[in-house]
Design a protein around this nucleic acid. Sequence first.
DNA 1: GCTTGACGCGGACACGTGTCCGCGGTCGCG
DNA 2: CGCGACCGCGGACACGTGTCCGCGTCAAGC
Lengths: 352, 352
Amino acid sequence: MSSSRPSTPSSVIRSTADFARHVGLARTTVSRVLNGQPGLKPKTIERVQRALAETGFAPNAHAMHLKGKRTSMIGICMEDLATPPGVRKLAALQRVLRARGFASLIEVFPPGAGREVIRHFLSLRVEAVVFIGHFVQEEVEARIAELTAQGTLHLVIDQFGLRGANTVSLDRAAGMAAVMGHLLDLGHRSFALLGQSKAPVSRYDRLTGIRAALESRGLDFDACTRSLDHLHERRNDFQYGWDLAKRFLALPARPTAFVGYNDEIAIGALRCLQDAGLRVPRDVSLTGFNHQDICLMTEPTLTTVDQNIETTVTTAADWILAHLGQPLRPKPFVRTIEPRLVVGRSTGPAKV
Amino acid sequence: MSSSRPSTPSSVIRSTADFARHVGLARTTVSRVLNGQPGLKPKTIERVQRALAETGFAPNAHAMHLKGKRTSMIGICMEDLATPPGVRKLAALQRVLRARGFASLIEVFPPGAGREVIRHFLSLRVEAVVFIGHFVQEEVEARIAELTAQGTLHLVIDQFGLRGANTVSLDRAAGMAAVMGHLLDLGHRSFALLGQSKAPVSRYDRLTGIRAALESRGLDFDACTRSLDHLHERRNDFQYGWDLAKRFLALPARPTAFVGYNDEIAIGALRCLQDAGLRVPRDVSLTGFNHQDICLMTEPTLTTVDQNIETTVTTAADWILAHLGQPLRPKPFVRTIEPRLVVGRSTGPAKV
DNA sequence: GCTTGACGCGGACACGTGTCCGCGGTCGCG
DNA sequence: CGCGACCGCGGACACGTGTCCGCGTCAAGC
C-alpha cells in the first residue's frame, strides 16, 4: 500500500478538489459548472454532469452554507407524531416545502426540551421554524422570543393566543359552535362534554364556541353541559372516550348528546354506549372532531368537523415562503381557517 | 429592561468572534469553554455559560462540521407519512435517536425522486440513512449502492429481499402463517384474500406464509384462496376493503374467512359485511394486520397481528448506533422480527 | 520583592466551497 | 499565417470554527 495516499486506491471523493482531479478539470471550473455560471463550453458542462452522475459525488452542504449559500432548511417542531391530524399537516407541509426545494428538519418537542431543540435549529441556521400542535404556552413564547431575537422566521400552526407569534390555526370555536348549533337544532339541551375541559386562552378555543352557541339561544352553559374530565388523566385516545362515557352512563340523568373532543374519543364513547345497549342516534347523539377517515367506518357514521387541513397548510406554506428572505415584521401575522361541519348518522333528534 | 451593558445596542451575534467580543473574552477562550477543554477558571466558564443563556447564541453547526465535528444527523427516508405503522416506527426511531443526540432529517421518498433525496443527505454528510416502508426495489438498491460507495451507513426497515441491504424487518410470512393457522384450526378452508396479491420477493413475504400454512396441512393454495385485487386500483384504505368485500359478496360461493392485508382494509370489509346483514364471526370470520388501536373499537374486536414495533425500532437503533463510526462491512446485516397473533372476536368456527 | 505557575490572549492554520482575477492555451476566422 | 475571442487554469481570499502555540498578565507563595 502506498503511503502517499491514505489507503484509498479507488480515490474516495470527498471534496470538489478530489472530484475535479477525477474529472481532469480545475476545481474552480467544476465549481462554476455546479453553480451554473456562464462562459463554459457545453461539452465541459456535460463532462462534469456525467462524472457527477457516475461518482455520486455531492458537494459538502456545510461548506456551501458557510460560504453564504442559503441552507434551505426548515425546522419543524411537532407536539408528537401520534396525533393523526398533526401528522397529516406535517406530511402536507413537508410535501409543499420539498417541492420548493426546502428540507424539513423535524423534531418532537417534549415539554422542557424545547430550548435544546430550538438551539439546535438555530445552530443549523434554519431559515424558519414551524410549530405544529399544542405546546406549553410560556415555553413556546420563550422560544419564539429567542427565534425573533436571532432574526429567524417562525410560524405556529394550531395554537392560538401566543403573544408575538405568527399563527395559522383552525377556528375551533366556530367548529364547536357549528356542532352545537346542529345539536341544538335537533332539540338537544343537555350535553356531555368529553375531553373539552381546557381553559380557553383565546376566542378561537372550543369552549368559547360551545358557550357562544348556547348563549346565542339564551341557554346557560353550566345548566346545559357537564364534564367529567377530572375523573381521568387527560388523554386523547379511544380508551379515554370509553372511560368517560362509562362515567356518564352511571349518572342519574343522562345527557342526550355526547360531544367528543376528537374522533377517537367519540368512537371510544360510541363503543361504550353501544355495549351498554344504547342506540345511536335514537337514544343518544354523538359527535367527533377532525373528520378522520375512520369516521365513515363506524356504525353509524360519525358527525364531525373537518379541519380543512389542505387550506391550513397551503396558507402556512405560502406565508413562510413569501417571508423567508425578508426582515422580520414586528406585527404578528394571524390567520384563522374555517372548519366545515360534516353531518353523519350519529346525530338525530333528541329523545324527549 | 436593564440596559446596564452599553456595548450591545445593535450587535447581532453571528459568530463566536461576535460572542466573545460581547462577553469580553478571546474567541479561543470561548471556544475552549464550548468544547469543554480543561485549564479554565470556573468563574470564566460560568461567565460564558450565562452569556450563552442570555443571548441565545448558538455556534454555527456548519462550520463545526466543516472542521471535522460529527454532524450527528441521520437521514430517514419514508415511503409516506400516511401509513400509521410507518409513522409509529418513525416516531419511535426519532425518539431513540434524539435521546442519543442525533437529529433526524426526514424526507418522504416519492418514486423517482430518491436520487435527489439521497444526494441531499450525502451533501449534508448524514451519518446514516434509514429507509422505512416499501419502495421500488431497483431504486432503493441503486440508492443503497450509492450510499455504500460514499461510505455511508444505511439500514432498511420493513422491506426484505434487497440485495446488499442491511435489513430489519417483520417476518410477515410468520404473521400470515399464524393468522392462517388460527383460521384453519377453526375449520376454515376457503379464504378471501383482501389486498395480498403482490409477488413475493423473499421468504418473509405474506403470500409465502399463507402458502406455507396451507401446504403444511396438505391444502392447495389455488383451491382454497381467492383474490379479487385486480378489480380495483391497489390501495390500503378503508374504502378499498369495502370495495373488495362487496365484490366477494357478489360471488356465487362466498369464502368463510376474509383475510385483510391490514387493519384498515379489514375494517372496511367489516363495514361492508355487516351492512349486507352478515354477522361476524358467526357467518364470516375476518382478520386484519398491524394491531392498531382502532382494532379494539370495532364490533366485534378484530383478530390481527402485532408488529412488535418497539422491538423492531430498538433493534434498528441499536445496530445503527453501534456501527456509526466504523467502516462499512461487506456482509449485509439481516434481522427478522417475530410478530404476535392477537386474537379478537372477529374470528370464529367456520360455518358449515 | 521575587519566583512560579495558572490562565487568558491572539496569531496562525485547516476544513470545503464560492468567487474574483490574471494568465495562458487553443481554436476559429479572415 | 496572424490575430483575437473564448475558455480553462490556478492562486488568492473569505466564510466560522477547532486547535495549537508562544507570550503576556496576574496572583499566590516564599
